[in-house]
């Protein structure tokens, strides 16, 4: 609740349920009730559909802690998330800086649009487009062979690097967008002042740019890290047999194995780990938002 006294308080009237009711009823039926149902299912011994009897159990959660297989996969997914996030930051931050501070006027508007245009376009199609580039005897291999005829086959398709490339391609515009917004808000005079007092480029970066752009960096990192942990389509298409992650195993439980309770439990364990990472990052997020 807001405690600002200057906000004119109108009496809560009949318009409120009419305006808010439909939206939140919709969200309740499609998001909040389903998530609750998923919690319930994660404690069942069987999928209670088709007359099968299910009893309460903790074994779905136990499965995760018993079997090294799931732990390894969770670890793999977290490593993937961390690596994609780091790469997006390393490539995206300089790009955001150049856009925000070194390009001016119309050019900036046009270039900015070009950078974030792929961001909302079809994710699946963009991953598919990489198969054209990475496949054996594909565009990348031919290009490399023109310049370096000795390299021969690159064998990139269906490897871990292929998944990395595809995911960085998917989430880079996100990182550039959030970093751009916070870099743009930094006053040029601040940088000029530091420079005129003798600060080197690196000092300016470390003492001014990085701290002031932290909100954007954190937002971009979270928006990249969380969906990458839950990705399954990208590893399947670009990773082939090397593309097994916690996301693909969860998907299997729902579409191939039909062990919904196990899938539900794994989903919540994954969410739990994501939450732990966010909590660990919380001091930084808090610093970023003040």
């Amino acid at each position: 609740m807001s405690d600002k006294a200057d906000i004119q308080r109108r009496p809560v009237n009949r318009a409120l349920p009419v305006l808010l009711g439909p939206a939140y009823l919709w969200l309740a039926v499609t998001v909040f009730l389903p998530l609750s149902a998923m919690v319930y299912f994660s404690f069942l011994s069987e999928t209670p559909i088709g007359g099968r009897e299910a009893v309460w159990t903790l074994s779905n959660y136990g499965e995760f802690f018993d079997k090294a297989f799931y732990r390894t996969l969770m670890w793999r997914s977290f490593r993937l998330g961390a690596e994609v996030t780091l790469l997006c930051f390393l490539f995206g931050f300089p790009c955001a800086y150049v856009l925000a501070k070194m390009v001016k006027g119309r050019w900036r508007e046009a270039l900015f649009l070009l950078v974030i245009l792929p961001f909302w376009s079809n994710a699946l199609v963009r991953i598919f487009s990489w198969t054209m580039v990475l496949r054996g005897n594909g565009v990348l291999e031919r290009l490399v062979n023109v310049f370096l005829p000795d390299v021969g086959s690159l064998n990139l398709m269906f490897t871990y690097p292929a998944i990395l490339i595809g995911l960085v391609h998917s989430y880079l515009p996100y990182m550039i967008l959030t970093c751009y917004i916070s870099i743009q808000a930094i006053d040029d005079d601040l940088i000029e002042a530091a420079r005129s007092m003798g600060a080197g480029r690196f000092t300016v970066f470390r003492r001014i740019l990085l701290p002031l752009a932290l909100p954007g960096i954190m937002a971009g990192s979270i928006l990249t890290f969380v969906p990458v942990i839950g990705s399954f389509m990208e590893p399947r298409l670009l990773g082939g047999r090397n593309g097994t992650f916690i996301g693909t195993v969860i998907e299997d439980q729902f579409t191939a194995v039909f062990n919904w309770p196990l899938g539900a439990a794994l989903s919540f364990i994954m969410l739990g780990f994501v939450l732990i990472v966010l909590l660990l990052a919380a001091p930084m997020i808090r610093r970023a938002s003040t």
């Binding site: 389903p34 969380v226 942990i229 839950g230 399954f232 899938g263 989903s267 969410l271």
Partner: peptide, 9 residues
């Protein structure tokens, strides 16, 4: 929340 979890729920 990852779409995978929203979708499966």
């Amino acid at each position: 929340i990852p779409w995978l979890i929203i979708g499966t729920s």
